[in-house]
Write a protein that binds this DNA or RNA. Structure first.
Length: 400
DNA sequence: TGTTGAATCCCAC
DNA sequence: CTAACGGTGGGATTCAACA
């Protein structure tokens, strides 16, 4: 049975929310949306990239995720404002609340976009266009920011449609419109065609989505592999068999990484960072009542070369100290102070939600030790939840 | 022959 | 003239080890 799918995308999300807040709440006269402006990370601590741009900034060729310095070179009078993540989360929650009035069948893709399966509820609001119009208007009137809405029969086409002309617009992309509306677009506009695939396709003379759609499937498979070759060919033809899945998906991994304000050149300093990362990752595992059975340590050196090393654990864990100790030994396997490290990260995978304790093959002494560390984590979690994450700090971090 | 683990690469936002 | 360069999560591919 044919479905009706909406993709709703907040226009320039962080920047819209920021300027909405500044004008409506702080009473600032300037609307950042009307001038070349960006929300950007802190350059002092080396987090200086573009998080969101205004439409006038985009006209200067400024892209999301590019270095702020590079953006400033393109537009010297660019206005740069710091992010307010708590605000954005609130905006996102309000956004989803309104979506919920149109269908319960919502898949939130990220902080600023969602798929809606409107198949069963659209009739309550009129035609698909009328329903989208009502949704868009409610968000604009009540929340003071604009969205684009894409309408089609599957997620891929709906998403492609929402990316058409912006802002504050509704577009449909039904199968009979693919040739006219989607095929003329550059191939890199197609979902899942990133930098690498685009480069390869350029060499093959594939410039538009239409070129790709009509390209020989077997030839694509030979260049891009069985899986990806077929997928991308189907996408170019608007074929995607995907359901809107209501978000109860569980994480397959939990990770944290940080670019340090200064390169690290000693194992002591590096392990201190790993401890802090172990704390946050461990806390998230315990919060979700899951354990991990594999740990990966990631490094990025001063030349931006990244490396990862991983290990499987003998026993699943959610204990901060176990994650910490193993992370340190992983790092010590391949790094001894050189080259200087710009970034450190920990990622835990092989997640299980077993609520039972696996029988230990080890001594009761080890069991005792484990129980102690578990209750230490429980205790620290409680204190931090009640009094804030800064209320307790490891002595080893204070020493610095 | 097929599976697993580790390292790397790719993609999205 | 060159540098400026985030964080999180999902997945595929490649290779070696192993069953």
């Amino acid at each position: 049975m044919a479905r009706l799918i909406f993709h709703v995308d907040v226009n320039n999300a962080f920047l819209s929310w920021e300027s909405m807040y500044r004008t409506a709440v702080l009473g600032e006269a300037l609307d950042l949306r009307t001038v070349p402006s960006i929300v950007g990370g802190d350059r002092e601590s080396r987090h200086g990239i573009v998080l969101a741009k205004s439409t006038p900034a985009k006209a200067y060729g400024i892209h999301t995720a590019e270095p702020i310095q590079s953006a400033l070179n393109k537009c010297p009078n660019l206005i740069v404002v710091p992010p307010r993540f708590e605000l954005y989360h609130t905006c996102s929650e309000n956004f989803v609340k309104i979506l919920n009035d149109f269908t319960p069948d919502i898949e939130k893709v990220s902080i600023d976009e969602a798929f809606l399966d409107m198949t069963d509820t659209c009739h309550l609001f009129g035609s698909p266009m009328e329903a989208a119009e009502k949704l868009k208007t409610r968000i604009r009137d009540e929340l003071l920011f604009t969205v684009n809405i894409g309408i089609s029969i599957n997620k891929l086409l709906a998403k492609m449609a929402s990316d058409f002309e912006k802002p504050d617009r509704i577009h449909s992309l039904f199968p009979n419109e693919i040739q006219k509306k989607m095929w003329p677009l550059p191939v890199c506009d197609l979902y899942f065609v990133g930098r690498s695939a685009q480069k390869k396709m350029d060499l093959l003379g594939i410039r538009t989505i239409g070129n790709l759609a009509r390209y020989d499937t077997d030839l694509l498979v030979s260049h891009f592999g069985e899986k990806y070759g077929k997928l991308i060919h189907e996408y170019a033809n608007g074929i995607a068999d995907d359901n809107v899945t209501i978000d109860n998906k569980k994480n397959k991994g939990y990770g944290n990484s940080i670019t340090l304000s200064e390169d690290v050149t000693s194992t002591d300093a590096a392990c201190q960072v790993l401890l802090s990362l172990s704390e946050t990752v461990g806390m998230r595992l315990r919060q979700d009542q899951v354990k991990c059975n594999s740990i990966t340590v990631e490094t990025k050196d001063s030349d931006f070369n990244t490396q990862t090393h991983q290990m499987t654990l003998s026993e699943s864990t959610d204990i901060t100290n176990v994650i910490y100790k193993n992370s340190c030994s992983l790092l010590n396997e391949f790094w001894h102070g050189f080259p200087p490290l710009r970034l450190l990260g920990i990622r835990t995978t092989k997640i299980s939600d077993e609520n039972f304790d696996q029988l230990s093959l080890f001594s009761s002494e080890d069991e005792e030790q484990k129980k102690k560390q578990e209750s230490l984590d429980v205790c620290l979690d409680k204190i931090r939840n009640r009094y804030g994450s800064d209320s307790v700090t490891r002595a080893s971090i204070l020493k610095k």
